[in-house]
């Protein structure tokens, strides 16, 4: 059975951060996240401390997964875009191939069309990096915790 881990190397995280920081400038977005298809946060731009990026990532992936089930019910393979519109702030989620989701939170000063255009361009840049993550091998097994480390950890 194949059970591949996802390995994010420092240089790849730097690339992802550069890409989403550029998107933030282009769109004046409030927060941008890159989440993998299981809901784990890969990267995010700095944001208001009241926004918890880990929870946001988890709920986004759950939301996206549920939406894809809806797609199947009506005979679509999937929905690649999910948009939530609020009174002031909105969430735009776009699939990064089958590897993850690009989440952009923005307010009403930015037109949705602009978010959509730049998000599409950005997912194309992110896709090869996320695909590479799944192919990376762990390099330093010795860094993993030993039994003793774990026993110490659980001295609650």
């Amino acid at each position: 059975m194949f059970k591949g881990n996802k390995v994010l190397q420092p240089e790849d995280l730097d690339k992802i951060n550069d890409i989403i920081e550029k998107l933030k400038v282009q769109t004046k977005a409030l927060v941008i996240l890159v989440v993998d298809d299981t809901g784990q946060l890969i990267a995010n731009t700095e944001s208001d401390p009241s926004i918890d990026p880990i929870l946001l990532g988890t709920l986004t992936a759950g939301n996206f997964g549920a939406t894809n089930e809806l797609a199947k019910l009506i005979g679509e393979a999937d929905f690649t875009l999910v948009l939530h519109e609020g009174n002031k702030e909105n969430i735009h989620m776009l699939a990064i191939g089958e590897c993850g989701i690009l989440v952009v939170i923005f307010n009403n000063t930015t037109p949705i069309g602009l978010i959509r255009m730049y998000s599409q361009k950005t997912t194309k840049e992110l896709l090869p990096i996320l695909e590479k993550m799944q192919q990376e091998k762990e390099k330093k097994k010795t860094d993993l915790p030993s039994d003793e480390d774990l026993n110490n950890l659980f001295n609650w």
Partner: peptide, 15 residues
């Protein structure tokens, strides 16, 4: 599918 983030030195596991 564990995520091993060498940049942040994190291992993230899902149970």
């Amino acid at each position: 599918m564990t995520m091993i983030n060498y940049a942040k030195k994190e291992i993230i596991c899902k149970v």
